[in-house]
């Protein structure tokens, strides 16, 4: 079980190292445990998260790629699709069986054909365009809809924080 998961993760790691997508870096933090990765995601340009480098943790199950990994931002995040503790709520990370929000068709959900790269790319597009149908963070979703200026201000603060630049 873990053997084939390990080989697949190794292949993905290799691919992500040799052909990294723009602004994304991912790999195991410590190769003693290949099932725990850290990813750095650059905020997409032209959005309120532009320029930030957001670290996230990816935890893979032993039966990967049959089951999806779990993803959690390790920095502070304020986004309609990210829980307060940093867990990411996007359809690609949901196993075909479970559907906590009840809005996704299984076509958008996890399948072994998906990969770390695809997950991270969808997270980037999620950062760009929040999907306020899934209310992982209700406050953020509300603010995104009603008070965009305040939302942008918070995002700006988070971006500065991830870059280690003190907020003026």
């Amino acid at each position: 079980m873990a053997g084939s998961a390990l080989r697949r993760l190794m292949a993905e790691y290799k691919q992500l190292t040799l052909n990294p997508p723009e602004g994304i870096i991912a790999g195991p933090i410590n190769e003693e445990n290949f099932f725990e990765w850290e990813a750095l995601i650059t905020g997409p340009e032209g959005t309120c998260f532009e320029g930030g480098v957001f670290p996230a943790k990816l935890i893979f199950p032993p039966d990967y790629p049959l089951s999806p990994p779990k993803m959690q931002f390790t920095c502070e995040m304020f986004h309609p699709n990210i829980y307060a503790d940093g867990r990411v709520c996007i359809s690609i990370l949901h196993a075909p069986g479970d559907d906590p929000m009840g809005y996704e068709s299984s076509a958008e959900r996890w399948s072994p054909v998906q990969s770390v790269e695809k997950i991270l790319l969808s997270v980037v597009s999620m950062l760009a365009e929040p999907n306020d149908e899934s209310g992982a963070n209700v406050d953020a979703a509300k603010m995104w809809r009603e008070d965009r200026a305040e939302f942008n201000r918070i995002a700006e603060r988070i971006v500065r924080k991830t870059l280690g630049i003190p907020t003026p």
């Binding site: 602004g23 870096i25 750095l40 650059t42 320029g51 930030g52 480098v53 500065r160 870059l163 630049i165």
Partner: peptide, 10 residues
Amino acid sequence: LLMAARRRYM
């Protein structure tokens, strides 16, 4: 990546 992003930001 972090350094480059920081510099770009500034």
